[in-house]
Design a protein around this nucleic acid. Structure first.
Lengths: 112, 112
DNA sequence: TATCATACATAGATTTGTGATGTATGTCAA
DNA sequence: TTGACATACATCACAAATCTATGTATGATA
């Protein structure tokens, strides 16, 4: 029974991308846009604060990747805590999406 | 291509309930909770302002139902504009839900 | 040399839902 | 008869999350 209607899907998306391996911020944003066929756009003003919060929560860790050419990148890696957080968030999303679908009169969702 | 990550699903849910026929505010909230198996809860602080906005947008119309016993109810009816707004919102939700599912690595959603 | 992509970061504004509070009536149990 | 709970409306202060705009800086391409 959700006390609050879910917001904060951005963190879930970031964690999901990092589940496939470490990535730097800009690449995470590009990956989300690509995988969603441009349906979702992650702006800088959303991305970087969200990464900071996730790192404070120890869901992700960062390390600078200084390249010989081009700007330095901050590479994020999913922690064990982040992996279990992702599991919970995906489950919560499923509940939410099914609940919306039920009210919209679409019956249950199934993944196929 | 969404410029903004969707918020405001509450209005979609309200319109969806009213698509089944007129209802007063309190009944709308109960209906959403029931249909979602208590996964979604619509608080007064969310419900009544949302109804006011939808009425200002001419998506719904209201009329007082004064009963012989019990408090008066404001009964809302979906307008034609509201019906087409609902269609658009449901389509937007589908796009959004599929996009999230794609990033979460679940492939496409299908209703069954 | 201008524009665009890469790459990080922050501040202020806006949107939207919550929690708390208020008014009222009707029912049911202790 | 009194307290709790459901019905039924409404509003305000607050918090959370995202957006827009702005800033720095490098490299590639036209």
């Amino acid at each position: 029974m959700a006390k609050e209607l879910p917001r904060g899907d951005v963190a879930t998306l970031i964690l999901a991308v990092l589940a496939n391996g470490p990535a730097h911020g800009y690449a995470i944003a590009r990956s989300i846009e690509e995988k969603s066929a441009q349906a979702l756009q992650l702006r800088e003003g959303t991305l970087y604060p969200a990464l900071r919060v996730l790192e404070q929560q120890a869901c992700i860790e960062s390390a600078w990747d200084v390249q010989e050419r081009g700007p330095a990148r901050k590479v994020y890696t999913l922690t064990e805590a982040g992996r279990s957080e992702l599991t919970q968030r995906v489950a919560a999303w499923d509940v939410y999406a099914n609940a919306i679908a039920a009210v919209l009169g679409k019956g249950r969702l199934s993944y196929g």
